[in-house]
Write a protein that binds this DNA or RNA. Structure first.
Length: 265
DNA sequence: ATGGTCGATATTCGA
C-alpha cells in the first residue's frame, strides 16, 4: 500500500494536479491539508472519477483536511479526542480527520502554524501537539498492535538539517526548542518518522516559501511527515519526497511525501 | 531547467 501526505494549499485551485499526483505515483491513500474550503465546496467528482473516496472537513476558507482513498474509507472521525480549539469560545478548527483505509488507521493533520514566538498561536500549537501526544498514547495503550499513521504538515523542522539556514530561523517559529520537544513527544509516544530513513538529508525539504526565489535557491524546510505506530513501522519499505511537484506555475508551496508500506503479513 | 508570492465569501490577512 502506498500512502502520502500533501499540503495542497487550496484543493479547488489544484484539484487537477492532485488527481494527477495520485495517478502518477499510484497512491492508495492521500492525506491533504489546507484544502481551504467548506465541505460542500470540495471538488469530489474528479476524485470519484479516478476511483477514490474522500472524507473531508472544512469550516471556512482556512485550514481544511481530507483523506482520499481507493482502498476503502471507514469510521471517519473529525478531530482527535481532546483536540484543543481556538477562539472565544474555543472551537475545534478543521485540522484533523481520521479514517480506516486498507487496515490502517490514518490521520490527516494540519498542526497550527504558531506565527511567531510569543504569539498566542504558538501556545495553541504546543497545546495541540500535547493533546495529540495524549491521544496517540491512548490509541497504543488500547491496542499496542494498532496500525496507525499520523500524516501531515507539522509546521516543525525537528532537526537543524531540516532547514536551509539555522540562523535564518533563529528567533522564529518551526525550530524553537519547545516546538521540537512537542514533536519529539509524539515520537516518544511510539510514532516513528517512516520517510526519513529513505530520504536522508541534509537538503531534503518538503516546503519552500513562495517568495524570494526560495525554491530555485533550495531554501526550504522539512516540515511534512508521516509518522507510524510500531507495527506500521515494520511494514515501511521505502519513501520519497516528490520535489518535482513543487516545480512550475500553479504549484503548492509544499511537496508531497510518499511512503511505501508492505502488505500486512 | 526549477524562477522575482499566493490564495480566499479578498481588496487584508494568513501562510
Amino acid at each position: 500500500m502506498r500512502i502520502a501526505t500533501f499540503n495542497c494549499n487550496s484543493i479547488r485551485t489544484r484539484v487537477d494536479r492532485v488527481v494527477a499526483l495520485l495517478e502518477r505515483h499510484e497512491i492508495d491513500v492521500l492525506a491533504l491539508q489546507e484544502t481551504k474550503c467548506k465541505d460542500d465546496q470540495f471538488p469530489l467528482l474528479p476524485f470519484e472519477a479516478a476511483g477514490y473516496e474522500v472524507a473531508h472537513v472544512g469550516h471556512s476558507q482556512w485550514n481544511g483536511v481530507a483523506l482520499v482513498s481507493r482502498v476503502g474509507i471507514e469510521d471517519v472521525e473529525v478531530g482527535f479526542p481532546g483536540q484543543p480549539g481556538w477562539g472565544d469560545p474555543a472551537q475545534a478548527e478543521a485540522r484533523a480527520i481520521g479514517a480506516s483505509c486498507g487496515g490502517v488507521r490514518l490521520w490527516s493533520l494540519y498542526v497550527p502554524n504558531g506565527r511567531s514566538l510569543g504569539d498566542p498561536h504558538l501556545a495553541y500549537k504546543l497545546d495541540w501537539l500535547a493533546a495529540l501526544r495524549e491521544a496517540g498514547t491512548a490509541w497504543l495503550t488500547e491496542d499496542p498492535q494498532a496500525q496507525i499513521a499520523l500524516m501531515g504538515d507539522w509546521n516543525i523542522a525537528p532537526r537543524d538539517e531540516d532547514v536551509w539556514s539555522v540562523a535564518f530561523y533563529e528567533g522564529r517559529t518551526h525550530t524553537s526548542p519547545g516546538e521540537r520537544a512537542a514533536f519529539q513527544g509524539v515520537v516518544d509516544a511510539g510514532y516513528a518518522d517512516l520517510a526519513r530513513p529513505y530520504t536522508e538529508g541534509p537538503g531534503v525539504y518538503t516546503y519552500w516559501d513562495y517568495t524570494q526565489l526560495a525554491f530555485p535557491k533550495r531554501r526550504g524546510m522539512r516540515i511534512d511527515f508521516v509518522l507510524g505506530s510500531p507495527t506500521l513501522r515494520t511494514r515501511a519499505e521505502g519513501a520519497f519526497v516528490d520535489r518535482d511537484e513543487r516545480k512550475g506555475k500553479g504549484a503548492s508551496d509544499h511537496a508531497p511525501v510518499v511512503v511505501e508500506v508492505a502488505d500486512a503479513g
